[in-house]
């Protein structure tokens, strides 16, 4: 099990480094990062690309915000 634990740490380290690189380089991810940081997930290009994928799964906060606006 020690091996398994080490593998998880390694995978997570890899994921954080590779993920940071992707977010830095890929415009869709960098814009989504900004949108999430600003608390507007409904504006992120990733969320928009998923509009037709399980459309019944929605952002409740965003709906409330839109209703308020």
């Amino acid at each position: 099990m020690e091996k398994g634990a080490k593998a998880i740490i390694f995978i997570l380290l890899f994921a954080f480094v590779a993920g940071a690189l992707v977010i830095w380089q890929h415009p869709v991810f960098s814009e989504s990062w900004k949108a999430l940081r600003e608390g507007r997930p409904e504006a992120s290009p990733i969320w928009l690309s998923n509009a037709d994928y399980y459309p019944e799964i929605v952002l409740e906060g965003a709906e409330r915000r839109q209703r308020a606006e």
């Binding site: 954080f16 977010i23 991810f29 990062w33």
Partner: peptide, 9 residues
């Protein structure tokens, strides 16, 4: 998002 960016690749 960071982890998924790596997972996207």
């Amino acid at each position: 998002l960071v982890i998924s960016a790596a997972n996207w690749a």
